[in-house]
C-alpha cells in the first residue's frame, strides 16, 4: 500500500513538472519593435485594421519653448512652415518627415525627425482638432541627438484603469526605458500605441531636390 502511494505521488509530481514546463510560455508575442524600418509598424497597423485607413489624425508638435516646424508635402518644394506649437493632420499608417528649426535655445540647429502614425483617437464629434496627438520634443532629446545619437519615442494613449494617477502638467510624462526594451511592447502594455517619433542628426542632401529623405505621405495643414 505504501509503495503504491509513493508511486502515485511520484507520478503526480512528475506530471506537474511536465505541465509546468509546457504552460509557462510567453503570454503575448510582439513581432514588431521600434527598431524596424520606419513605416513597418504603420503599414502593419492599417493592413490589420483596414478601417483605420484614410483617417486623418491631428497631431501637434511642441518644441522646448518656441521655434518653427516645417511640414513637407511630398518634396521640399511644398514646404509649409509654421510656428510651434503646430498642428497638422496626418494619415494613419503613414510616416512623415518634418523639420524643426529656429529654436532660441539652439541657434543654427535644424533637426529632421519622422513621425509614424500607428493609430487614431476617437474624439467627440467635430472636436478632433481639440484632441491632437501631442508630439513633444524636449531639450534633453535634442541634446542627445546633437551627440550623434538617436532618440526613439512611442506615444501611447493610456489605458484608463492602469493610467498613472498623476495630474498631467504642461509636459507629457515620459518614461525612459533600457535600450534593450521593445518600446512598442511597453506602450502596448500601458495602453494603445499611437505614434513613433524618431529623431536623429541626418540632414537632407542640399544638392538633391528629389531626395528620398523627404516623405511623400498625404498631409493636411489647417488654414491659419
Amino acid at each position: 500500500m505504501i509503495r503504491r502511494t509513493s508511486t502515485l505521488t511520484m507520478a503526480i509530481l512528475l506530471s506537474t513538472l511536465l505541465l509546468a514546463s509546457i504552460a509557462t510560455a510567453q503570454d503575448r508575442y510582439f513581432p514588431l519593435n521600434h527598431r524596424q524600418p520606419t513605416g513597418t509598424a504603420g503599414r502593419w497597423s492599417v493592413l490589420t485594421h483596414p478601417q483605420k485607413y484614410g483617417y486623418v489624425q491631428p497631431i501637434e508638435v511642441q518644441l522646448p519653448s518656441a521655434g518653427n516646424v516645417t511640414f513637407y508635402q511630398g518634396s521640399p518644394k511644398n514646404a509649409v512652415q509654421t510656428s510651434a506649437p503646430s498642428q497638422a493632420g496626418m494619415m494613419v499608417g503613414h510616416s512623415y518627415r518634418i523639420r524643426i528649426s529656429e529654436m532660441p535655445e539652439y541657434p543654427g540647429v535644424e533637426l529632421y525627425p519622422t513621425i509614424e502614425i500607428l493609430d487614431r483617437l476617437h474624439p467627440p464629434t467635430q472636436q478632433a482638432q481639440s484632441f491632437p496627438i501631442p508630439i513633444e520634443i524636449t531639450e534633453a532629446e535634442i541634446e542627445i541627438v546633437m551627440q550623434d545619437r538617436m532618440v526613439t519615442k512611442v506615444v501611447y494613449l493610456e489605458q484608463p484603469d492602469i493610467a498613472a494617477p498623476f495630474e498631467q502638467g504642461k509636459r507629457i510624462r515620459t518614461e525612459n526605458l533600457p535600450v534593450t526594451a521593445n518600446l512598442l511592447q511597453a506602450a502596448d502594455e500601458r495602453g494603445r500605441p499611437m505614434a513613433i517619433i524618431r529623431i536623429g542628426g541626418r540632414i537632407p542632401d542640399p544638392t538633391s531636390l528629389i531626395d528620398a529623405f523627404y516623405s511623400t505621405s498625404p498631409l493636411v495643414i489647417p488654414p491659419r
Binding site: P37, H94, P223
Partner: peptide, 22 residues
Amino acid sequence: GGPYACPNPAMIPMGPPRGPMV
C-alpha cells in the same frame, strides 16, 4: 465642422501606405 483643408487632392494615395522608407 473641421477647419482643415487638403492642399493637393492628387497626393492622396490609393491603397495602404507603401513599405518602409528606403
